[in-house]
């Protein structure tokens, strides 16, 4: 698996553990929202970072109490046509002020990368065989943005009147 973060390939330091596997004590781990709810206290006591993996139908309010503790949220795209995680990412950034990593996982296309970036994603788990260079190009194909979003890019409505 190739991980692209902040526009470059990076080492993935995180391990994703399913609900039946023991959470390693010495490595940053991504767990499901369910597991977080059930094992909150124990997971908090670890001294390594913890992250959450949210399905596309997750409701941000349900995990709001976790946001102070966790350092990464992986948002799932079960299909590239399922656009719920775009809204979830914006809510995490803009409403809840989450500053950790927001990682796009699942079925994602490089042609969607820029939309994701603008909604607050900063990391992308590429599908096996994806062309990394093309992916990174895809993050900046369109330089003009008509509307403000969760990123710091300035919208045309503002640029026009500077």
């Amino acid at each position: 698996m190739t991980l692209v973060k902040n526009g470059a390939v990076v080492e993935n330091e995180w391990v994703t553990v399913d609900d039946d596997t023991i959470v390693p004590i010495d490595q940053p781990a991504i767990v499901s929202a369910n597991r977080w709810r059930n094992e909150k206290e124990r997971l908090r006591q670890r001294n390594v970072p913890i992250g959450l993996r949210l399905s596309s139908d997750a409701v941000v309010d349900d995990i709001a109490d976790a946001l102070d503790t966790i350092e990464l949220i992986a948002l799932e795209f079960p299909a590239f046509t399922d656009g719920r995680s775009y809204s979830t990412a914006r809510l995490l950034r803009e409403r809840f002020g989450f500053e950790g990593e927001i990682r796009a996982v699942g079925q994602i296309l490089r042609d969607q990368a820029q939309f994701m970036l603008r909604c607050g994603f900063d990391a992308f788990e590429l599908a096996p065989g994806a062309n990394v260079d093309e992916w990174i190009d895809g993050l900046s194909e369109i330089a003009i943005h008509y509307q403000p979003a969760a990123d710091t890019r300035t919208s045309t409505a503002v640029l026009r009147h500077r």
Binding site: F80, F115, R118
Partner: peptide
Amino acid sequence: STLHPEFSF
């Protein structure tokens, strides 16, 4: 609405 990053899917 043009290339709205949140509402394209």
